[in-house]
Write a protein that binds this DNA or RNA. Structure first.
Length: 840
RNA sequence: GCGGACGUGGCGGAAUGGUAGACGCUGCCGACUUAAAAUCGGCUUCCCGCGAGGGAGUGCGGGUUCAAGUCCCGCCGUCCGCACCA
C-alpha cells in the first residue's frame, strides 16, 4: 500500500533541514568553480504573485542543477524596496512607508520560503535600509569624484495640486494621474549621471553579450541610437538675438545641394529670439508646444512651419539663400535642434516642402544617368550616386559624405560629428522614500559632496504625508547641517536617488558585503559577472542599461573586473489566466462564477450570463489573479513549481489553469509511488537502460538551454517507461536517476524520495547523473522505408547494418514489391540506421 | 513608418533537411468500486472505409531536394518594441 505524497510535511522537514545545514549559503572562499544565478529582485508590493513564482522557479532549477554539477553556487534574494507605492500607501492609509515596506517584505519572504527556493538568505538585502543605501551614497561619491556626476537644470512634469514631480507614466492625457490637474513643465536643478560618456562602450559591449536575447540587444542598440554624420553652420543673412548663424546636424551631408529650407525647433534659441518681437511667430510656437505628446497625436500631426523670413546662406554658394522656418517636427533635444531640409530624400522634408511649395530636387540617383528621374509621391531615401550636386556629381553616397565633411573641416564651417539618442541619466527624484543624495548645499561654496565618514545619511523617520509634496523639503531639522568645506551653515540636498540606482549595483553587493564599504572588489570578482540573470522583458532597456553603465564605471574606477555585469540574460514570459466579464462589462473573478440551470456559466450573485474574456496577464484590475499561497497549501510547492516549468517554453506566456496544476500534482504522486517501490530485484532491462540514458541527456541539455518544458517532457517519458517496466536492477537504478533528475524542479519530493530509498545525505548535494553516449540508442534500429518520399513501411535491423544489406532488405518487403510492380527502382537513398527512400 | 518575433490537432506545445503532432491538458471508451473520487489501461489531426488500408495535412502561393514544419523567393495575419532621431 502506498501513501500519497504529504507535501506539507515534506516541505517543513526539508526546508528546516536545508536551513539548519546552511545548504544554500555560498562560500566565497570555496575552491569549487563558481556559478552566480540571479533573478531580478522583487519590489515588495505586498504579496508574491505567480509571475514571481515562475521567475524564481526557473532560477532555482538552474541554481540547484549547478550545485549538483559541483559548482559553488551564489543564488541570493533581496528587495527593491524604495519607490513610490510606499509613499502612496502612506498617503492613503496613514502608514509610514518604512513600516509598510518592511511588513510587505516579511510577508513575501515567508511566501518565497514556502516554495523551497535554494536561496542564500544570509545575504538578503533591502535597498531601503541604511546598510544598503549608505553604501550606495559612497558609490555616488566615487562617481562624483570620477567626474561622472553633474548638476543641471532640467524640465520635469510638475503636478501643481499635489506639489510633486511626476514620472512620465503618471501623466495621463497631460493631467496628473491622482489630482487630475493639468501638468506643468517646471525647470529644476537636478543631478545627472554622465552615462553618455559610456555610449560608445555600452554599444560596443552589446556585441560580446552572446548569451543575451537578440531582441534585448537590439532594443538597447536603438535606445543608445548612434548616428554618424556632420555638424555645420549656416550663416544667417541677418543677426537675430545676437546670433548670426544656425548650427545643424545631418547624417546625409551628401544631399546638401538638395537643401531647400532650414528648420529649427520651437524652443530653439533662434525661434525664441524671433518670437520676441513677432507675435505671429510667438503664437505658432505656443501652438506647437501645446500639441500633444502622445504617440498617436505625433503620428497624425501634420508637418507645420512658420517662415521667419530670415535667410540661411548655403555653405557652398554665398548667393544661395534658404528660408528659415520654425517647424513642429524638429526636436530641440536631438542633434542641434535645427536641420536643413532635403525634400527629395527625406520623407518629413518631402511632406513639409509639398505643403509649403518648396523646391524638390533630386540629388541622389540609383545611377549617374538617372539624374532627371522625378521624385514622386515620396522621398527617395536610398543611397546611390550624387547628381545635380556640382563637385559631388558621380560620387557614391559614402564618398560624397566624406567629401563634404573634408571641405567643411578644411574651410572651418563644419565637422564630422556623431550624435546619440541616449541622454544623461537624471537621478534626482523629489521624493521621500529613496536614497538621500549625499550632497550639502552651502551658500558660499555651492553644492559640496558629503565626506564619506559622515555616511550614511539616514532618512528621517518622523515625517508626515498629510500635506502634498516632499516631506524632506519641509522637515525642520533634517536639512540643517554644516558645509564640509567652510563649516558654515548649509542645507542637505532633499532630492533622493532614482530607484534604478538601487538596482544597478545590488548584484555586486550580493557577491560581497563588507560593513565598511560597498563591496570588496577581490571577493566580488570571484562571482561576477552573473552567469545567468533572469527577469521580465520590461527591464530590457532601462534597468539593464543602467546596470551595465554602473558596472563599467565601477570597473574603471574601482578594482571591479566585470564591465559587463550579466553574462547571460533570459527574459521569461508572463503568467496569464482566463478573464470573465459580466454582460455590462465588469470584470469578474472566478470565485464569482457559478453554473446556471442550463449548464452555462453565470454570475453567482445575480444568475446573469457571463462572457468569457481573453486570456490576459494576471492583474488585480482584471480580477484574474491566482494567489500562490492557497495553491501551495492545496497542491504543494513542488506541484506549483512543476506547473510553472511545464507546458509553455519559458520565454513565452504561461496560462495558469486548474487542469494544469492538477496534472502537475498527478506527476508528483506518480514519482512518489515509484520511489516507494521495493528495491532489490535482479536482472537487466536493456530497453529501460536506454531510456534512462536518454532521459539524462535530454534533461541535462534542456536545463542547460533553459528549455524547462522540454526537461519536463523528458521526465514524463522516463516516468512512463519506469512504470511500464518490470522489477529489475535496471529499474531500481532508473528510479534513483529519476529522483536526481527531478530534484532541481521538485526538491522536496526528491529529498523525501531519496530518503525513503535509503539515500545518504541530501539529494540537493548529490551528484548530477551522467549519461553514457554509447547507451543512448537501442541495438535494433527501426528503419523507415519510403517510396518517392512517402512512408510505406518500417523494418527493424541491427544497428550499423551495411547500406547494401539494408537496401536489399527494404526492396524485399512485400509492400514495397507491390508498389514497385516489378519495375526496378530508379534510385535508392539509404541513411544508415534511419531510413531508405526508393525513387520509383 | 522602422525594427523584431511568431504562425503546427479541440488547447499548451515537440520535431540535427529524414516516421509531423513527442510530452501535457481536454474529451471519449474500458477496468477497479455498491457508488463516486482517486488510480490504472486504451483511443483522441482531418476525410473515406466495418476492416485491412487509402487520401489530405504544419497561414497562403511558388521554388530547391531522393526527401521541406525545417532551406530560398513572394504574399497574408498576429503579437511586441521604438517612433517626426535629421
Amino acid at each position: 500500500m502506498t501513501d500519497r505524497f504529504d507535501s506539507a510535511a515534506a516541505e517543513r522537514r526539508w526546508q528546516d533541514r536545508w536551513d539548519a545545514q546552511r545548504t544554500f549559503e555560498a562560500d566565497s572562499a570555496s575552491d569549487r568553480p563558481k556559478a552566480y544565478v540571479l533573478e531580478m529582485f522583487p519590489y515588495p508590493s505586498g504579496r508574491i504573485h505567480m509571475g514571481h513564482v515562475r521567475n524564481y522557479t526557473m532560477g532555482d532549477v538552474l541554481a540547484r542543477y549547478k550545485r549538483m554539477q559541483g559548482f559553488e553556487v551564489l543564488h541570493p534574494m533581496g528587495w527593491d524596496a524604495f519607490g513610490m507605492p510606499a509613499e502612496n500607501a502612506a498617503m492613503e492609509r496613514k502608514v509610514h512607508p518604512g513600516a509598510w515596506t518592511r511588513e510587505n517584505i516579511a510577508t513575501m519572504r515567508a511566501q518565497l520560503k514556502r516554495l523551497g527556493f535554494a536561496l542564500d538568505w544570509s545575504r538578503e538585502l533591502a535597498t531601503c535600509e541604511p546598510d544598503y543605501y549608505g553604501h550606495e551614497q559612497a558609490l555616488f561619491l566615487d562617481l562624483y569624484d570620477a567626474g561622472l556626476v553633474f548638476r543641471k537644470e532640467s524640465e520635469v512634469n510638475w503636478d501643481p495640486v499635489d506639489m510633486t514631480v511626476l514620472a512620465n507614466e503618471q501623466v495621463i492625457d497631460g493631467k496628473g494621474w491622482r489630482s487630475g490637474a493639468p501638468v506643468e513643465r517646471k525647470k529644476l536643478s537636478q543631478w545627472f549621471f554622465r552615462i553618455t560618456d559610456f555610449a560608445e562602450e555600452l554599444l560596443d559591449g552589446l556585441g560580446d553579450l552572446d548569451r543575451w536575447p537578440d531582441k534585448v540587444r537590439l532594443m538597447q542598440e536603438n535606445w543608445i541610437g548612434k548616428s554618424v554624420g556632420m555638424q555645420f553652420d549656416f550663416a544667417l543673412d541677418e543677426t537675430v538675438g545676437g546670433a548670426d548663424k544656425v548650427t545643424v546636424f545631418t547624417t546625409r551631408p551628401d544631399t546638401i545641394f538638395g537643401a531647400s529650407f532650414v528648420a529649427v525647433a520651437a524652443d530653439h534659441p533662434l525661434a525664441q529670439a524671433v518670437a520676441k518681437d513677432n507675435p505671429e511667430a510667438a503664437a505658432f510656437i505656443d501652438k506647437v508646444k501645446q500639441g500633444g505628446t502622445s504617440a498617436a497625436e505625433i503620428e497624425t500631426a501634420e508637418k507645420e512651419g512658420y517662415n521667419t523670413g530670415i535667410g540661411a546662406v548655403h555653405p557652398f554658394d554665398a548667393a544661395w539663400k534658404l528660408p528659415v522656418f520654425i517647424a513642429n517636427f524638429v526636436l530641440m533635444d536631438y542633434g542641434t535642434g535645427a536641420v536643413f531640409g532635403v525634400p527629395g530624400h527625406d520623407q518629413r522634408d518631402f511632406e513639409f516642402a509639398t505643403k509649403y511649395g518648396l523646391p524638390i530636387q533630386r540629388v541622389v540617383a540609383p545611377s549617374a544617368d538617372e539624374a532627371d528621374k522625378p521624385i514622386e509621391g515620396e522621398a527617395d531615401t536610398e543611397a546611390g550616386v550624387a547628381v545635380n550636386s556640382r563637385f559631388l556629381d558621380g560620387m557614391d553616397t559614402d564618398a560624397a559624405k566624406a567629401e563634404v565633411i573634408a571641405r567643411a573641416e578644411k574651410d572651418g564651417w563644419g565637422e564630422a560629428k556623431t550624435t546619440w539618442r541616449l541622454r544623461d541619466w537624471g537621478v534626482s527624484r523629489q521624493r521621500y522614500w529613496g536614497t538621500p543624495i549625499p550632497i550639502v548645499h552651502c551658500d558660499k561654496c555651492g553644492p559640496q559632496p558629503v565626506p564619506k565618514d559622515q555616511l550614511p545619511i539616514v532618512l528621517p523617520e518622523d515625517v508626515s504625508f498629510d500635506i502634498p509634496g516632499n516631506p524632506l523639503d519641509r522637515h525642520a531639522q533634517w536639512q540643517v547641517t554644516t558645509c564640509p568645506k567652510c563649516d558654515g551653515a548649509a542645507r542637505r540636498e532633499t532630492d533622493t536617488l532614482d530607484t534604478f540606482v538601487d538596482s544597478s549595483w545590488y548584484y555586486i553587493r550580493f557577491a560581497s558585503q563588507p560593513d565598511d564599504r560597498p563591496f570588496d572588489a577581490a571577493e566580488a570578482n570571484k562571482w561576477l559577472p552573473v552567469g545567468q540573470y533572469i527577469g521580465g522583458v520590461e527591464h530590457a532597456i532601462l534597468h539593464l542599461l543602467y546596470a551595465r553603465f554602473i558596472a563599467r564605471a565601477l570597473s574603471k574606477h574601482t578594482g571591479l573586473e566585470a564591465p559587463e555585469p550579466f553574462a547571460g540574460l533570459f527574459t521569461q514570459g508572463m503568467v496569464t489566466h482566463e478573464t470573465y466579464k459580466s454582460l455590462d462589462g465588469r470584470w469578474l473573478s472566478p470565485e464569482e462564477l457559478g453554473v446556471g440551470t442550463d449548464g452555462e456559466m453565470v454570475e453567482r450573485a445575480t444568475g446573469a450570463a457571463v462572457e468569457r474574456g481573453r486570456v490576459e496577464k494576471m492583474s488585480k484590475s482584471k480580477r484574474n489573479v491566482v494567489d500562490p499561497d492557497p495553491m501551495i497549501a492545496r497542491y504543494g510547492a513542488d506541484a506549483v513549481r512543476w506547473f510553472m516549468l511545464s507546458d509553455s517554453p519559458p520565454e513565452r506566456d504561461l496560462e495558469w489553469s486548474e487542469a494544469g496544476i492538477e496534472g502537475a500534482n498527478r506527476f508528483v504522486q506518480r514519482v512518489w509511488k515509484l520511489a516507494q517501490a521495493e528495491r532489490g530485484a535482479a536482472g537487466v532491462d536493456k530497453a529501460l537502460d536506454v531510456k534512462r540514458h536518454q532521459a539524462i541527456a535530454a534533461v541535462t541539455s534542456a536545463i542547460e538551454g533553459l528549455q524547462f518544458n522540454k526537461a519536463v517532457a523528458a521526465l514524463y517519458e522516463l516516468v512512463s517507461a519506469i512504470e511500464k517496466a518490470a522489477a529489475s536492477a535496471t529499474r531500481d537504478e532508473a528510479i534513483d536517476t529519476l529522483v536526481r533528475l527531478v530534484a532541481p524542479m521538485a526538491p522536496h519530493l526528491a529529498e523525501e524520495a531519496h530518503a525513503v530509498r535509503g539515500g545518504a545525505g541530501l539529494v540537493a548535494e548529490a551528484a548530477w547523473p551522467v549519461h553514457d553516449p554509447a547507451k543512448l540508442v537501442a541495438e535494433e534500429a527501426v528503419i523507415v522505408v519510403q517510396v518517392n518520399g512517402k512512408l510505406r513501411d518500417k523494418m527493424s535491423v541491427a544497428r550499423g547494418t551495411a547500406k547494401d544489406a539494408v537496401e536489399a532488405q527494404a526492396l524485399a518487403l512485400d509492400k514495397i514489391q507491390a508498389l514497385l510492380e516489378g519495375k526496378p527502382p530508379r534510385k535508392v537513398i539509404v541513411v544508415p540506421d534511419r531510413l531508405v527512400n526508393i525513387v520509383a
